[in-house]
C-alpha cells in the first residue's frame, strides 16, 4: 500500500491545483444538489440534478478515474435524468411552482440531515486528517486499465449484472403494461367479488376504455378515490343495462 508520504506534504495551507479544482467543482456539485432537493419546481429539480451528476463526473476525472467519469456522463446524465424527466412528464408534474413539493416533516428531515452530516464530517475529517492520495503515475482508471481489471477479475459479476439488467427490463415492462391481453386483470380482486362470469371480462375492458377517454381531461384534477367511485357507478350502470 503506497500511502503518500505525509512528511513531505505541505498540508492544507498550500493546496495543489488539483485540490483547488476539486474543491471548486465540489462546491458547485453540492450547491446543485442542495437546489435539487429544495426547489419547488419539479422540472428544475431534474435539471439541477444534471449539474450535480456532471460535477461528480468531473470529480471522477480529477481522481484519474476516466472510464467511470464517462460512464457517469453516459448513464446518469444521458439516460437516468431523461428517464426522470419522462416520469415527471407522465405523472403530469406542474411546470410552474408547486407549493406542495415538500411534505410536512421538513423540519424533522432537516434536523436528521444536519445531524448526520455533522457527525459524519467530524468522523471522516478526524479519521483521514493525515492521509493523502497519490495521483502520480499512470491513470488508475483509464479505459485500458478498466477493461483489464473488469474482464480479468470481475467477469462473473459482470455477467450476473447483465442478467440482472434483463430481469429489470422485463420487470419494468410487466409493471408498466396496462393490462393482460387475455382479459386477465392484474388487480382483479374487486371485479371477482360481484361478477357472475360470462361476458363480464370483455365488458369491463370496453367500459374502462370509455371511462379513460371521457375522463382524460380532468383526471388529474380528481383524486383517485373519486375516480374509483365514478368507475363503480358506471360499472353498476352497465350491469343494469346488461340485465
Amino acid at each position: 500500500m503506497t500511502l503518500a508520504a505525509t512528511a513531505g506534504h505541505p498540508g492544507f495551507l498550500s493546496p495543489t491545483g488539483v485540490e483547488i479544482a476539486f474543491v471548486l467543482v465540489g462546491l458547485v456539485t453540492f450547491g446543485a444538489a442542495l437546489i435539487t432537493v429544495t426547489t419547488k419546481q419539479l422540472v428544475h429539480a431534474a435539471l439541477w440534478l444534471v449539474v450535480a451528476l456532471g460535477g461528480i463526473a468531473v470529480e471522477y476525472l480529477l481522481l484519474t478515474a476516466e472510464f467511470i467519469a464517462w460512464v457517469q456522463v453516459l448513464i446518469y446524465v444521458g439516460s437516468i435524468v431523461v428517464l426522470l424527466l419522462f416520469g415527471l412528464m407522465l405523472t403530469r408534474a406542474p411546470i410552474g411552482r408547486s407549493p406542495d413539493a415538500d411534505s410536512g416533516n421538513r423540519g424533522l428531515a432537516l434536523g436528521v440531515a444536519v445531524a448526520s452530516a455533522a457527525a459524519l464530517v467530524w468522523v471522516v475529517v478526524d479519521a483521514f486528517r493525515t492521509t493523502w492520495i497519490n495521483l502520480e503515475g499512470p491513470a488508475q482508471g483509464s479505459t485500458k486499465a478498466s477493461g483489464e481489471f473488469l474482464f480479468r477479475h470481475w467477469v462473473l459479476p459482470f455477467e450476473a449484472l447483465s442478467v440482472l439488467l434483463l430481469a429489470a427490463l422485463v420487470g419494468a415492462i410487466v409493471l408498466s403494461r396496462k393490462e393482460g391481453k387475455d382479459g386477465k386483470d392484474p388487480g382483479g380482486g374487486v371485479g371477482a367479488k360481484g361478477s357472475k362470469g360470462g361476458p363480464r371480462g370483455k365488458d369491463r375492458h370496453v367500459m374502462r376504455d370509455r371511462t379513460d377517454r371521457t375522463d382524460r381531461e380532468d383526471r388529474t384534477a380528481r383524486t383517485a378515490r373519486t375516480y374509483r367511485t365514478d368507475r363503480q357507478e358506471q360499472s353498476a350502470a352497465s350491469r343494469e343495462d346488461m340485465s
Binding site: 444538489a33 442542495l34 432537493v37 452530516a117
Partner: peptide, 21 residues
C-alpha cells in the same frame, strides 16, 4: 490530493440526498 476532500464531499452529498428522501 488530501483524502478528506472527496470523503467530505461524499458525506455532504449523502446527507443532501437523505434530506431529500
Amino acid at each position: 490530493m488530501h483524502l478528506a476532500y472527496p470523503a467530505v464531499l461524499a458525506v455532504l452529498l449523502f446527507c443532501t440526498g437523505l434530506y431529500g428522501v
